[in-house]
Each structure stands twice: as C-alpha cells, then as structure tokens.
Design a protein around this nucleic acid. Structure first.
Lengths: 216, 216
DNA sequence: CCAAACTGACCGACCAGTCAGTTTCGGTGA
DNA sequence: TCACCGAAACTGACTGGTCGGTCAGTTTGG
C-alpha cells in the first residue's frame, strides 16, 4: 500500500516516520474501527513511540483525518490515471467503475476505512468525514458532466446521479466486505455496470464489450 | 416516535420502562453516535437509574441492538402498510420510495441511527449491524421479484438491484442529513425515482403522474 | 551546539458494568 | 379487608480498566 504524501518532500526521515505511522494507522483502523483502535497499538506497530505520534499529529482524530485524506487522494488519483486513453466520457465512467472495483478488491482495508469507518467515526469530525465520498462523487460527476457536454447524455441532475451511483457502488462493496464468500467483487461488475448505465439511459451496446474480460 | 415492541404485552409497567429506555436511547445514540453515547445519559433522560437499564438489557450493546431491531420493524411495517392499495409491483416500489423519503424527513434521528450509526458501530456487532439494511433491501427485492412475476420486468439479479437501490437512497438521505440546507428531501424524489426506475428499464410514463404531488 | 525528532512512564478523565440494599405490587390466607 | 410475603423492579454509589494525551528528559543530525 503506497500512500501519497502531498506537500512534503519525500525521503526525509521525518517523512518516513509520518508514513510509517499512517500506514500502521490504516491497518489498525481497518481492523478495529476508529474507536477500538488504540494509539498505543498504532505506534507500536509502526515501531515508534507514543510521543512521536503526538509530535507529528495533534490528536488521534488528526491521525484519522490525515489518513482519510491521503486515501482519498490516492484513490482518486489512481482511478483517474486509468482513464486517460478512454475515448469518451461514457467509456471513462465505465473504466472508472472497473478500476474502483479492482482497487477495493486488492485493498480491502482501504475499502473498509474509506467506506465504513468514515461513516461511523461520527459527525464529531465535521465535514472531513465525507471527504472521500465527496471526492469520489465529484469524480463521477465530472465525467457525467463531460458526457452531457459531449451530447452522449441528456442534461440532468448530475450531482444527484453521482451521489446515487456512489451510494450504490458503496453498498455493494460494503456487502462484499462483510461477506466475501458470496463470490468475488468482479462478478457483480456486468450487472452493476448495466444497472448504472441504464439508469441514465445509456444503451449498453454503445460500448465495445471486449473490455469486459480484461479484468474479469 | 412510536416504537413497536414485539412479543411483549403492552401497557405493563415493565413495558413502559423498556420503551422509555429505548426511546431515550434513540435520542442519545442519534445525537452522540454509539460510542460517545453514555449509558448514564440514556438512563437519566429516561428518568430511570442505571441499574434498571442493566435489569432490562445485559449491556449497552444489547440496548443498541434492540433499538435497531425495533426501528427496522417499525420502518418496514410502516412502509408496507402504505403499499396495500397499489395496483402493480412497480407502483408499490414507487410508493415505497415516496414513503421512505417521507418517514426519514419526519424522523431524522431514526434516519441517523439506522443509516449512519449502524454502519459505524463496528463489525464487533456481528451480523445484527446490517439488520435494517437487510430488511429494507429484502423489501425492495420482494417487490422487484413481484414485478418480474407480473412480467413488468425482465428477469434479472434482483438481489443486486435491491442492494444498489438501497445504497443509492441511503447515500442521498445521508447527504441530506449532513447538510439539510440544500433543500428538503422531497425535492429529490422525481429525479431519484426517474433514475431508479430507468435503471431497470421501466418507462416513467407507465405510471400515472397524479401521485407525485400528493406528498410533495 | 542547538533544534528537531524521539522516548516511554505517567496521569486523569471517562464510563461500562456491579451489587447490596430499597421499593413496588400481585397474590394469598385468615 | 388487611397483614404479610416473596419476587420483580428499581436505585445509585462505587470500581476497575482502558486509553488519549502530557512532559521531562534523551538522542540525532546538520
């Protein structure tokens, strides 16, 4: 799991410590959830001391917030990177869905923290709580807007649709997280894809189907 | 907020205490979230003592679980009651959506506990955590299956669709909970309805539109 | 040499859960 | 009608453990 560390020059010792702490935090928060995760465990797994954690972050909450922001950036950046050579906005939406499914399949802890823990950490955290969700919905929305601009889509409430799509995807992933035995996440891709695209009136046959088996 | 108390004869003193505790728990959990909610506060707001809470429930977690079950029953029962005189399964799905939006609009605390807190209370709770979600997805699924049986819908993965629909609705409600200033929840109904129905290939014009303004 | 980075023992607040004792109340027999 | 009993319901002071956060002191590195 490679974390992106914006605004900090890489390779310094300070940076390595910060990264070690966040990486450990990802695991502990992912396993225990925010409240049951103890700072003591985060630092011990990171091979640092408690004082160091409080040298780098003012509070446990700040560690969590920083982690969520890193994860959101990582996720959005990595998904967007895969969309570059898609010809149309609709293709990019399609590719984004596949990409997200792929990432979550490979990084369950990331999925758990960004989709489940963030919701439960409580509104005490203010707006940061919804950071990942907003980032992601914004990504979907951008490409929906592009599709409208391209004329592939009727003008519509892209904000609402992006939110709804994110909710749908999130719910499916959360179910899969909770009970992975019901088959790999990739299995749901064709049906989910069909559902989402059809919801905005896109004929599934507009898209070449040769892309599907690529990841499946 | 009327809670349903299955399996207990109403009107007894015991029942009144249990109800008072759960009602108070609903408020405190709704305001503070599971972890920040103190049993002391729940009992004090209920006008009872701590010992009483532990006489009726074995643990704080048990209070939460019981509450979630009551809420799920209340919600599903109340929604289903409104579907009786709808002519077709599609109409019932439509009515259910409106009904849910209505209930959540009027009972924000209920929405917060069932949609947000349940997710965040952590997997420590085992499967009960997903109780509301499952109950609700099952409701949607039943009517989707009915629609298939009626021939109004092509055979499809109704389980997946129900999950996705629930996720979409849930996400919209959670956004509204978090930032209610962006307009009442009812405002999203037409667009959301259109999106969901179109996602399964239902032509919006099949349904009489005179129902829309009824609750709007 | 100094500041940044780091250490880990310690503190204190918080809170779920306990328990010994008290009150309430339906039943029972005289 | 009433005295009495036992169980159910209830009380709230107390405890034990957990854990976020502190800080006085040590190490590192430029």
């Amino acid at each position: 799991m490679q974390l992106r560390l914006p605004g900090a020059r890489r390779g310094t010792k300070r940076d390595a410590t910060r990264r070690a702490l966040l990486e450990s935090a990802l695991n502990v928060f992912g396993e225990k959830g925010y409240h049951r995760a103890a700072v003591d465990e985060i630092v011990s797994r990171a091979g640092r001391s408690k004082g160091t954690a409080y040298f780098h972050f003012p509070s446990k909450e700040a560690i969590f917030r920083a982690l969520v922001r890193e994860l959101a950036s990582y996720l959005v950046e990595r998904v967007e990177r895969e969309l570059d050579d898609e010809p149309t906005a609709i293709h990019r939406l399609d590719a984004a869905l596949l990409s997200v499914i792929d990432i979550f399949t490979k990084h369950r802890t990331l999925a758990r923290v960004t989709l489940v823990e963030v919701a439960g950490a409580g509104r005490a955290f203010g707006d940061d709580l919804l950071f990942v969700r907003q980032q992601f919905a914004a990504l979907i929305r951008r490409h929906l807007d592009a599709a409208v601009a391209e004329g592939a889509l009727e003008p519509c409430d892209t904000d609402l649709i992006a939110t709804a799509w994110f909710g749908a995807i999130s719910e499916i992933v959360v179910h899969w997280l909770h009970d992975p035995d019901r088959g790999p996440l990739h299995m749901t891709y064709p049906a989910l894809r069909h559902l989402l695209l059809q919801s905005v009136g896109i004929d599934i046959n507009q898209l070449p189907s040769d892309r599907i088996p690529a990841h499946a």
